[in-house]
Design a protein around this nucleic acid. Structure first.
Length: 774
DNA sequence: CAGTGAGCGAGCTTCCGCTTGACTT
């Protein structure tokens, strides 16, 4: 007979807490929400806004266990997180387990430490129904938006698409950014660098300095260079000032995802998976958090660890405060459980992420770095031989240097710059000692043509950063949202090929001025998020009909309403009814507006041969070009849009080319050979078999002979494919694939080791079954 | 990882937040 039952959200947490509380307490986990709106239907009464909840199939078992333990216990404590969702979890537990709200204690804690838990037990409270209602409003709003908008897309764009408060805005960010980049006009400018020499105790030393402003044209560069030929240079000012740099706060989910991407090359979901392991093994605190708060326990142990490792002057305990929009701060920041463990025994990825977390946490408790920043300005004086002594022209160069006088937190953690900052830093650059009035000798001067750069495309991590800034999404949903928008094919990670761009370098050496042309690749990008045709069409469609939902501040605005509900100042059903009253008619209207054209459809022109209209649109299976319409006598002709074309940019000429496929190129062995292009690129079809053309052949120009060659090559490979089979086990075969021999058994493939591959022909049935089993 | 190749008139699809599952012996 158990006296007390405590219910928390996470099983790892349950284990820890049980240790703190001792024998009178049993601690169990609800594994998150135990009840939700029904999966398939909208499950909201559109008049009253009353939600219909159910226990999802995969939660039945947990609920049954909780029920039976709750019955046995004298007292039940609900210890879910202290935020909207956590309060709702507790309320659902009350409802489902049949607990009396008056008899049930709701407790909360923000850190999993013994004093925090014991203190929480001493301060139980009742369920906060206002907070629960704020969650219900959130839940109902998201369901209404998602389940009303998605079907509109199925009708107007393409089946199985989805829209939602979070994902649609995430896509919009990427679409807007891409359009900004396309619109961007790159302007050239010229950055001028000079090398001087000066005398430092009899030694000639070099000094690099930069012109204090950018030049706009080559003419300006040439004119200035002419002046510089005769100019004399003196030090105008020497300024030294101490600068302090402070460490960044410890990790939240979003900053961890960003830093792991930059420093370790992890994807957002990879980071979460690895962090989950670290958490389950007790190495770090909870990894889904928006808080930068550290427990006093951590502050103390961090101090001890830093003192021991680096000495007292490196220690500087500090507490950080969260500024993120809509942060709910139910947990601590992400930190090591034990600060005295600088490293752990674990698989490599976990080790690396752990060390990153340790360093970031430690650095946050360390002293500021102190630097000395030196700025030297150099004046060029140009003599005016013609006696024209109008306003003296002042040309200034600046040289900056930075010296770390005390490294502080930099000893363990170097901050990485944002995505779009340039790599040039003055860090570690030491300038020779100089004084005002000192004269310098000009050596070489170089003006390099540069180009203003458009805003950077989003990476997974920088998108998360932006979403957090706008208050869209939560720590638990960043990674899933990024997967969703890629799964729906709204965006994809891709490479953009740059364009070759010439630029000019102008050099003044001695008295001779030279111009050199070079070229660089501009605008190339790797692995960045790009909108697809479908993403563009869906985004434009939603922007046109539902600008309110697509507004970047929509979430922030409704959050304010949720806050008012949480404070008991507004009724949640009232708020939802008001929203729905405006929203629902727009949905109806959009569905009803039976326009002839599908969303995103674009007419390119007419086929010069038949006069039939040619258009691009999103078809049942993605973007297609179409010739003719359904109401004409002759059926319309379709062709899938190959990847290299975009719906926005394809021309009539390019589209007409696409209709030239499928192309019959002749006969072989009495059967026609047809060339077409499909999902996996161009292919030849012959005798019911398909042969890929590969990259070397163009489907428009390939000859019959070339195609036959490919067909024969494929046949040969096909024949070599089969290595071995066994009469006793017809389902088992040893085959030769793209990566050498492998075993196929009952529809599944099994790889072989290097040694096994070498003697693939001699493998026995027993050996094969062994491999399958392993 | 191990081979793919249709259709454009029917089925199904979808949201955001919480949380990790486990057919063995």
């Amino acid at each position: 007979m158990q006296k007390n039952l405590v219910i928390v959200e996470s099983p790892a947490k349950a284990k820890t807490i049980e240790k703190f509380l001792g024998g009178d307490y049993k601690v169990m986990s609800s594994y998150g929400h135990i009840r939700d709106l029904k999966k398939r239907e909208i499950s909201i009464d559109e008049k009253t806004m009353e939600p219909q909840y159910e226990i999802p199939a995969d939660k039945k078992k947990v609920v049954a266990q909780l029920k039976s333990e709750a019955k046995k216990a004298e007292k039940v404590w609900l210890a879910s997180d202290e935020d909207r969702e956590g309060e709702a979890i507790s309320w659902h537990l009350c409802e489902v387990l049949g607990l009396d709200q008056q008899q049930t204690s709701r407790i909360v804690f923000h850190e999993i430490t013994k004093p925090a838990i014991l203190k929480a037990i001493e301060q139980p409270r009742m369920l906060d129904m206002n907070l629960v209602n704020a969650q219900q409003a959130r839940r109902v709003l998201d369901r209404l938006v998602g389940f009303k908008l998605s079907p509109v897309l199925w009708r107007k764009v393409k089946p199985a698409l989805s829209a939602g408060r979070v994902q649609s805005v995430a896509v919009r960010l990427i679409v807007d950014r891409e359009r900004e980049i396309q619109k961007f006009k790159s302007e050239p400018y010229y950055a001028l660098q000079a090398v001087f020499t000066l005398d430092d105790n009899g030694k000639q030393v070099e000094l690099k300095a930069t012109l204090d402003h950018r030049l706009k044209s080559q003419e300006e560069v040439d004119a200035l260079m002419q002046q510089m030929k005769q100019a004399t240079f003196t030090v105008d000012s020497v300024q030294k000032k101490p600068v302090k740099r402070s460490p960044a706060p410890p990790f939240t989910t979003s900053t961890l995802q960003q830093e792991a991407a930059r420093k370790l090359g992890f994807t957002v979901s990879q980071t979460m998976l690895v962090a989950q392991h670290l958490y389950e093994n007790g190495h770090i605190t909870y990894m889904r958090t928006d808080s930068v708060n550290l427990s006093s326990l951590c502050l103390n142990t961090a101090k001890t660890a830093i003192n021991a490792l680096y000495g007292e002057k490196y220690s500087h305990p500090r507490q950080f405060h969260t500024h993120a929009k809509g942060a709910q701060e139910a947990h601590e920041a992400i930190r090591p459980t034990y600060m005295d463990r600088q490293t752990i025994e674990a698989p490599q990825q976990e080790q690396r992420l752990y060390e990153l977390i340790w360093k970031r946490t430690a650095a946050s408790q360390m002293a500021d770095a102190e630097l000395e920043k030196t700025t030297i300005t150099i004046e060029a004086e140009c003599g005016h031989a013609n006696g024209d002594n109008s306003a003296a022209q002042k040309t200034l160069f600046t040289a900056t240097g930075e010296v770390v006088t005390f490294d502080g937190f930099l000893k363990v953690y170097r901050p990485t710059e944002g995505d779009d900052t340039q790599a040039d830093t003055d860090e570690g650059k030491l300038l020779p000692p100089m004084h005002k009035g000192q004269s310098l000798e000009r050596m070489e001067m170089t003006a390099t043509e540069r180009f203003s750069t458009p805003p950077a495309r989003y990476t997974e991590a920088s998108l998360v950063h932006k979403m957090e800034e706008l208050g869209i999404g939560r720590p638990s949903t960043y990674a899933p949202t990024i997967s969703t928008i890629q799964q729906r094919e709204y965006v994809q990670k891709g490479d953009t090929k740059g364009q070759e761009r010439p630029y000019t370098i102008t050099t003044l050496k001695g008295q001779s001025l030279t111009h050199r042309k070079k070229s660089e690749m501009a605008g190339s990008d790797k692995g960045k998020l790009l909108p697809t045709d479908i993403g563009l069409v869906v985004n434009d469609f939603l922007m046109q009909h539902f600008p309110n939902i697509m507004d970047y501040s929509f979430t922030a605005n409704v959050e304010q309403d949720f806050d008012r509900i949480a404070e008991g100042k507004e009724q949640w059903e009232k708020m939802m009814k008001a929203f729905y009253k405006k929203f629902e008619p727009t949905v109806e209207q959009t569905l009803k507006s039976r326009s002839e054209h599908k969303a995103g459809e674009r007419v390119l022109g007419n086929d010069p041969e038949t006069g039939r209209p040619v258009m691009v649109k999103i078809g049942r299976f993605g973007p297609v070009v179409q010739k003719g319409t359904a109401d004409e006598k002759e059926k319309p002709v379709f062709a899938q849009l190959p990847k290299k074309f975009s719906m926005e940019a394809i021309t009539l000429e390019e589209a007409l080319e696409l209709f030239r496929l499928p192309r019959k190129i002749g006969e072989y062995e009495g059967k026609t050979v047809t060339i077409n292009t499909g999902r996996f690129g161009p292919y030849a079809q012959h005798d019911g078999k398909y042969t890929s053309l590969g990259k070397d052949f163009d489907p428009m120009t390939i000859t019959l002979e070339e195609a036959i060659g490919l067909i024969e090559a494929k046949r040969k490979k096909e024949a070599e494919k089969h290595i071995k089979s066994f009469d006793e086990k017809p389902g088992l075969e040893v085959l030769n694939g793209r990566w050498g021999p492998y075993i196929v058994y009952e529809g599944k493939n099994y790889r072989l080791t290097k040694q096994q591959k070498e003697r693939a022909k001699e493998l026995t049935l027993e050996e094969c079954l062994e491999i399958v089993k392993a």
